[in-house]
Amino acid sequence: MSDAPLLSVRELTVRFGRTLAVDRASFELWPGEVLAIVGESGSGKTSLLRAVHGDLPADGGCVQYRLDDGALVALDELPEPMRRQLARTQWGFVHQNPRDGLRMAISAGGNVGERLMAAGARHWGRIRAEATEWLRRVEIDPARIDDPPRTYSGGMQQRLQIARVLVTRPRLVLMDEPTGGLDVSVQARLLDLIRRLVSDLGLSAVIVTHDLAVARLLADRMLVMQGGRIVEAGLTDQVLDDPQHPYSQLLVSSVLQA
């Protein structure tokens, strides 16, 4: 267990015009830890995730990340080339809609290989071998390596997106509703896959979800957001089994028991 957090978010604030989408959110993420952010639509959870990733400009606060050499840097102070370099090697972002995270006209192999090539890989055979291996790991038949993702099912596309992100062995993965929009049976398979990969690779992950079962299955800790604020934070099973905040209690009691 490392005592230094990998990611440190301080008082992060995002405004859309006069609306406060994220209101002074603070949290830390340690190496190997999975953190879930839950809340209903419009609670600001996706905005928080995108602001952490640098896709949304923050109107206050900061996001700090610990580099390989142990130095903690504020992301908005890093020069853009370095931030991009981080984003395509040490970080990964899994979009809810795989179309946002994949190149639909490029083959599965090209999609997985892109991050390797962006990081400087120039040996075709090795890129191909790595892509094949990753398709296998996300349970896609390697025989389909040359097919474009538009010929894939929704669940396969999402698994391909995960392979594309994980191929560079990132330290931090941010996922926005990774199982949203999928059939329940497909969801279960994907969740199991994410769970296994996260633990095998020792990833740190932040997962935004409205599904409390997803949080329970994947996350060590969770944050509950309401109206742009983090209203409760704690151990996942403690927040789910003994929620303290009125909104958390409402959220937990609103889940249908199957």
Binding site: R84, I106, S107, G109, D146
Partner: peptide, 18 residues
């Protein structure tokens, strides 16, 4: 600007794959 040219090689990768 960032010499971020991985995508260019993706095109060549595709050519060889096909």
């Amino acid at each position: 600007a960032l010499a971020d040219y991985g995508l260019m090689h993706v095109k060549l990768y595709e050519d060889i794959a096909r």
